[in-house]
């Protein structure tokens, strides 16, 4: 046997060894070399725990280990200024009550809160330019966006989120803000449609002023977020389906100068109920804990 043959035998042997090792490593957790936050075993356990509590996981979950940071936001003034300018130009009556300013026009009422929230109520409703034949949510979403754009009410970085049927003939369309393709669930535009007319618009938009890369940390896994939510909610009397889980930013609405928004796992039940689990602490985001005013 010469050296060449020996090398060939060794190549075959090491190739076989590598295949064996690769099989052991990649199966059943393919992608183990790229660190995972949720193993298949953990996923199975999570699904089992949820089923025991009457929750059915009906969506894919992100199993990779992710990192995130806080973003600092301030209420957006841009839309408000533009909108106020239009209102005042049209000659509205202005009334101030506590933290709100009311703008009365013939066909509408606008309320601007000091927190930055803008609410518009159209007395007779606004017909959309596009003919609405069927309630296709994407068409509707686009049509509503066009209306918002024409009326200087369309913020930048807006993404259609979902449509919700409130009652017969009454729909809510929700859009949320995004930053570098990551949703900011707190920044949102909500449009209420009644009998295919825009009935009300609510805009709460934020200006992300800074990020905290120094505080970039690993977030909890989506499985842990699900487990925490189930522990918090307890067993369900009826079957509930988890239809979407995604990572974004969310915090309550504050009447503050600026604040940090943490990353959250948003968990959607039956396409209509939304829960936010803080992706750093694992706590369910409820109303903020604010000590009594001093």
């Amino acid at each position: 046997m010469n050296l060449g043959q020996a090398k060939l035998i060794l190549i075959i042997a090491f190739t076989g060894l590598n295949v064996f090792l690769g099989y052991q490593l990649f199966w059943p957790d393919f992608g183990r070399l790229t660190e995972v936050a949720v193993t298949t075993e953990q996923l199975r356990e999570t699904e089992q725990k949820m089923e025991e509590n009457n929750y059915i996981l009906e969506t894919q979950i992100n199993r990779s280990q992710l990192t995130s940071d806080f973003i600092t936001v301030t209420p957006s003034w841009e839309i408000r200024q533009e909108f106020l300018y239009q209102l005042i130009k049209s000659g509205v009556q202005i009334e101030r009550i506590e933290h709100m300013t009311y703008y009365h026009a013939d066909d509408m009422l606008a309320i601007i809160h000091t927190s930055g929230l803008i609410q518009l109520f159209y007395h007779k409703g606004i017909s959309l330019e596009d003919e609405i034949v069927e309630l296709d949510e994407n068409d509707l979403a686009e049509s509503v966006k066009s209306y918002l754009a024409v009326n200087n009410l369309l913020p930048e970085n807006i993404t259609f989120d979902y449509m919700e049927k409130i009652s017969e003939g009454r729909l809510a369309l929700k859009y949320h803000q995004h930053l570098d393709d990551v949703p900011i669930f707190s920044g949102q535009v909500k449009v209420i449609l009644e009998d295919k007319k825009i009935n009300a618009v609510e805009i709460y938009w934020l200006d992300p002023s800074e990020r905290s890369p120094k505080r970039e940390m690993e977030v909890i896994s989506s499985a842990e977020a699900l487990n925490n939510l189930v522990s918090e909610l307890g067993p369900s009397a009826v079957k509930r389906h988890i239809t979407k889980i995604d990572l974004g930013y969310y915090s309550g609405e504050y009447d503050a100068e600026k604040w940090e928004v943490p990353p959250v796992w948003r968990i959607v039940f039956d396409n209509k109920q939304y829960y936010y689990i803080n992706a750093f602490t694992g706590n369910l985001e409820k109303d903020i804990v604010i000590p009594d005013q001093l």
Partner: peptide, 30 residues
């Protein structure tokens, strides 16, 4: 590090992790 900061209009700072909150004002904290 897990607590986020809310800067209030009166200059007070509120730290919270979603479960507990600490407000730092000029002459007090709560």
């Amino acid at each position: 590090n897990l607590a986020r900061v809310i800067e209030e209009r009166d200059g007070g700072l509120l730290y919270t992790d979603g479960e507990k909150g600490l407000r730092l004002a000029d002459y007090s904290f709560e």
